[in-house]
Amino acid sequence: MRQSTAAEAVLQRRKWELPAYRGRARRIRPADLFVYAAGALILIIAICAAFPQWIAPYSPTDMMMDAIMQGPSAAHPFGTDYYGRDILSLVVYGSRDSLYIGFMSVLVGGLAGGAIGTLSGYVGGALDAVLMRIVDVLMTIPGILLALAIAAAMGPGMGNIVLAVAAASVPGYARVMRGQTISIKNRPFVTASRAIGATPFAIFWKHVLPNSLSPLLVMATLGIGTAILTGSGLSFLGLGVLKEIPDWGALLSQGRGYLTVAWWICTYPGLAITLLVLAVNIVGDWLRDRLDPKRKEA
């Protein structure tokens, strides 16, 4: 209460307070079908990213200048763009960088934020106060502005976009992990293992981490969606990366000027982003329901 805002404390208490997950009767509910569909979609996109050459009908860099801006047809199911590139192929190949931005920024942001939060919560005291003030500072600067400034400062490049998006997500992870750590470190079983001489690292590894994994996992899943959207926002503001094979955000952003004359150029990359983020969110919600024992769904 003293450190974080009351609002968050309420949320945290509501979400994560109760102990481990208890088993639940297994039966397939219709809502699960959406989860399966979402999972399948993510799988398909992952396959596209892993083996684009198996799926894409053309090379994504092949510019067929005598066939620019052609609508969807048998030869080009998603049409061609303003250079005469096959859009289906671009979308298939573009999945790589989009997933890269999504996963890497969550990984980097989650690790950094998680580490700060754990340390802060575990050690407490002055370190906690200082770290949390820094997190507060980061929190007051809206994510996209932070990302904008970092992307502008570091120049174009996939790594820098990842870093920019990751930095914006650090405060969120730090807060959640800190809350988790504090709530766990004073539980009887932790105090007990400390009493029998367990090292802080062992306590972290055996108790804190496993107990914090579920909220972190949920946050990370949802974070993938946010990261992809923030990345596309940066493209829109002109801070994206111009690559031979653009990611979906860049495709959408670059194609938006053609919306009224050749809608297919940006519609398919846009749908790809939306469906991926949608799928990730559905899976995230589902994970939350599964991992959070408080939720008693009839």
Binding site: Y82, Y83, A152, G155, P156, G238, V241, L242
Partner: peptide
């Protein structure tokens, strides 16, 4: 920027590896 993207592909055909750098 689009000119750069096309030139990159055209030069590839004559064996030149073009690095396109877009900067503010």
């Amino acid at each position: 920027n689009d000119i750069a993207a096309i030139i990159q592909q055209q030069l590839k055909k004559i064996g030149i590896d073009t690095e396109v750098v877009i900067t503010k």
